[in-house]
Amino acid sequence: MKEERLDEIDRKILRELRSDGRISNQKLAERIGLSPTPCWNRVRALEAAGIITEYVAVLDQRALGMPDTVIIEVQLERHDDAVFQAFGDALVELPEVMEAYLVTGEYDYLIKVAVSGTEGYERFLRQKLYKIRGIRHSRSTFALRCLKRAHSVVP
């Protein structure tokens, strides 16, 4: 099932699940105008096709004691496969890292990190990020306010 094969009912299902991944099949079926069995079959088909990849709980980073978000740009010393692999593997292991992207441009990585203020950020840099080999340079920006947060695109 490719994106162009999605009909309006599939799109409605995806929009509902995007906003409430814990919705019951019965309630989902009611909202989109299907009976429960065809609704269940469509959801399973969307999962099997890889369009729905996972269901998650979104945690409040403020409530977890890490209210601040920092965007870090990282430039590596070398650009070979081993360095990229080692750096990427190390990032995956850091719990503060919420997102990490290999990017084009002046910097090699764009990393979104949750921290507790400037002290938490300094600890993250000194005790974790800068312990990863291969960093040439980094540049950081504290987010002042989140204007939009989406966990997937709208179908």
Rank of each mutant, 00 (worst) to 15 (best):
K112A: 10
G65K: 13
N41L: 12
E99W: 04
G21W: 13
Q61T: 11
K131I: 00
V113M: 00
L46N: 06
E122N: 13
I32S: 03
R139L: 12
W40Q: 15
R149N: 08
F87W: 04
E119F: 09
L6R: 04
R11K: 14
K128F: 05
S138C: 02
Y109A: 05
G105V: 04
T37I: 12
T53L: 13
L102I: 12
G50M: 06
L94G: 00
I52G: 07
A29Y: 05
G50C: 06
A63D: 06
I13N: 00
R11Q: 08
L34T: 09
R15N: 08
K112G: 03
I132Y: 03
D108W: 08
D89C: 01
K112M: 08
A82P: 00
T69Q: 13
Y109D: 07
E8T: 05
W40I: 13
I132K: 07
L64I: 04
I135G: 00
Q75G: 10
R126L: 10
S152C: 05
L129K: 07
R126I: 08
H79V: 07
I72G: 01
L46I: 01
Y121R: 10
R149T: 14
V97S: 00
S140R: 02
T53F: 04
H79A: 08
K12T: 01
S152R: 11
I111F: 03
L59S: 12
D20F: 05
F142C: 04
A57H: 13
R42N: 01
R78Q: 15
L147D: 11
L59D: 09
N25D: 13
R42V: 02
V43G: 03
L64W: 11
Q75A: 15
A82L: 10
D20I: 11
A29L: 09
R139N: 13
G65N: 04
L147C: 06
G134Y: 00
R22W: 09
I13F: 03
D68C: 05
A63G: 03
A100H: 09
R44A: 07
I132N: 08
V43N: 04
L28M: 09
S140M: 02
F84D: 10
N41E: 10
R149Q: 11
Q61H: 15
L64D: 04
A114H: 13
A90E: 06
D89S: 11
T118K: 14
L6Q: 00
R22S: 15
V83K: 01
L91C: 00
A86M: 03
G134D: 02
K27W: 00
A48G: 04
R133F: 07
D89T: 05
R62Q: 12
W40M: 13
R136F: 09
E73T: 10
L17W: 05
S140A: 14
I111C: 02
D80S: 08
G88K: 12
Y101H: 09
E8Q: 09
W40C: 11
N25G: 08
E73P: 01
P95V: 02
A86R: 11
A82R: 14
A49H: 01
Q85W: 01
T53A: 06
P38V: 02
T104D: 13
S19A: 15
T141R: 14
V56M: 10
D80R: 15
K12R: 12
L102Q: 12
G21D: 04
E77D: 10
Q75D: 09
I9Y: 07
R145E: 15
V56E: 03
E106H: 08
E73N: 15
K131P: 00
